[in-house]
């Protein structure tokens, strides 16, 4: 598994953790509170913040872990090679994942606009955008993983 692939997996895991945390905060309220009365803004902002921090921390942990693991297995000289810039295959896979993620996000933005036109509650618009951004990131990461495993 390449360094870029490990980073991609770490980002995907971070995204899933954040979504799980946010769902744990909001889902219990759906059955007891009207949509307009659910205070979702604060947990959503916290989730976005946690997501950013978690992505950075997980990337650092993967980098350090990869360096140690590669150093132990293949020697110190191999570490810089392992951690070097992504190559053409990584970039091609990255572009593929970004394209898929971008398409998912576009659908979410259009759906959010529709909720505004039809004057749905702010809760719906905000969550379509939030979940759309999350789904975009996850879809992109999944496509990248598949491309790494099965080829491009």
């Amino acid at each position: 598994m390449s360094y870029a692939q490990r980073i991609n997996l770490a980002m995907m895991a971070s995204g899933l953790l954040v979504l799980a945390w946010y769902a744990h905060q909001i889902l219990p309220l759906l059955s007891t509170t009207a949509l307009d009365d659910i205070a979702f803004a604060r947990p959503m902002m916290v989730a976005i913040g946690i997501g950013i921090v978690l992505s950075i921390v997980s990337a650092i942990l993967v980098s350090v872990g990869s360096a140690i693991w590669t150093g132990v297995r293949e020697g110190e000289a191999a570490v810089s090679d392992e951690m070097s810039e992504e190559d053409e295959r990584d970039k091609q896979i990255s572009r593929l994942g970004d394209a898929v993620g971008g398409n998912v996000l576009s659908v979410a933005v259009i759906a959010a606009l529709v909720t505004i036109w039809f004057e749905h509650p702010l809760f719906a618009t905000a969550h379509i955008l939030f979940l759309g951004a999350w789904a975009s990131a996850i879809a992109g990461a999944v496509v990248k993983q598949i491309a790494y495993m099965r080829g491009v």
């Binding site: 090679d81 190559d87 053409e88 295959r89 990584d90 491009v152």
Partner: peptide, 20 residues
């Protein structure tokens, strides 16, 4: 100047490299 995984993918026919 590529990763070992890219060489592996090329060897296994899972990736066509650029001309370069």
């Amino acid at each position: 100047g590529v990763t070992r995984q890219t060489i592996l993918a090329i060897e296994q026919g899972r990736y066509s490299p650029s001309l370069e």
